[in-house]
């Protein structure tokens, strides 16, 4: 009934524990597995690092965004298109 989860199941439990409170026994089994398995321990630490740094992603994307401009070539092309279209419209 309370079998020790394998690494694959543990990796799921690690992620699940970040989104909801796990039932007592699952939590216990997760902790037991993590104590014994350094790879799953690493997996857990790394997910938490990703979480911590993701909080800064918003500002980062904003900063990237403001650096984006329409390429000059496209700008030129659009101006020409507008000019030729407005010429044919007013005719």
């Amino acid at each position: 009934m309370f079998m020790m989860p394998n690494c694959k199941e543990t990796s799921r439990l690690v992620s699940a524990s970040m989104d909801r409170k796990l039932p007592f026994f699952k939590r216990l089994l997760l902790r037991l597995h993590l104590r014994m398995c350094k790879y799953c321990r690493r997996f857990e630490q790394q997910l938490f690092r990703i979480r911590a740094i993701s909080r800064h992603l918003d500002q980062h994307i904003e900063a990237l965004d403001s650096a984006i401009t329409l390429p000059d070539e496209a700008r030129k092309r659009m101006r020409n298109a507008l000019r030729s279209q407005s010429g044919s419209l007013s005719r």
Binding site: N6, C7, K8, Y39, C40, F43, R49, I53
Partner: peptide, 19 residues
Amino acid sequence: FNDNGHWKIHPAKWAHNPG
């Protein structure tokens, strides 16, 4: 993971700290 659910590609030790 392999068939019995153990890591086949181990999570690597991260050499840098993004903090």
